[in-house]
């Protein structure tokens, strides 16, 4: 019963946040909408036993990533809101048609069963830091190390892009 209540409340919140993100003309509102959705999803993580990912969701996504977004929005200028008129002639009807087809297809596919496959274990999932950490450093240690590489490359790439100048030279 508690879960149902949570699902209804935060499900509506998540959808509202998502729609307002797409709908808002001002990117600041978009960012706030997305933040609401992310926090709602964090709640769902908790109700599904993903305690660690829920915390990470809040700290990394709702915290760091969205802060970065807002920072860039401020850097570029809040007043750059776009007008509603569509300049690509068929884009809007095409997009809506495709989206409707896609949504219908997915929901239709899920009408019978959403999750297939045999259970991998016998006990309910324990999403604690300890459990995730054990898994990461036992089974996934190589991918885990590779993510470090990826992050370094991303950081280097960001620095390179930031140093890029119109005249092609460095600072």
């Amino acid at each position: 019963m508690v879960e149902l209540t949570l699902f209804v409340i935060f499900g509506l919140a998540a959808v509202f946040g998502a729609v307002s993100m797409v709908w808002a003309r001002n990117p600041v509102y978009s960012a706030l909408g997305l933040m609401l959705t992310m926090l709602s999803i964090a709640v769902f993580y908790v109700s599904n036993g993903g305690y660690f990912v829920a915390v990470v969701q809040v700290i990394i996504y709702a915290g760091a990533v969205m802060t970065l977004f807002l920072f860039v929005i401020m850097l570029i200028g809040v007043d750059k809101s776009e007008e509603r008129t569509e300049r690509l002639p068929v884009q809007r009807p095409l997009a809506l048609g495709l989206l409707a087809l896609f949504a219908a297809g997915v929901l239709w596919a899920g009408r019978l069963v959403w999750v297939t496959g045999a259970p991998a274990g016998v006990v309910p999932v324990d999403g604690s830091i300890e459990a995730i950490g054990t898994e990461l450093f036992r089974k996934w240690v190589l991918p885990f190390e590779v993510t470090a590489l990826l992050l370094i490359i991303a950081a280097a790439g960001a620095v390179a892009l930031a140093l890029f100048r119109e005249d092609g030279g460095d600072e």
Binding site: L88, Q91, A95, L98, L101, G105, A109
Partner: peptide
């Protein structure tokens, strides 16, 4: 067209087509 969103629509078109294919197969 050079517009990113046209390309994105193309991607979605492909996704819809794939989805349709899987549904039809299933």
């Amino acid at each position: 067209t050079g517009f990113v969103r046209t390309s994105a629509a193309g991607v979605v078109l492909g996704a819809v087509a794939l989805l349709g294919w899987f549904l039809w197969r299933g």
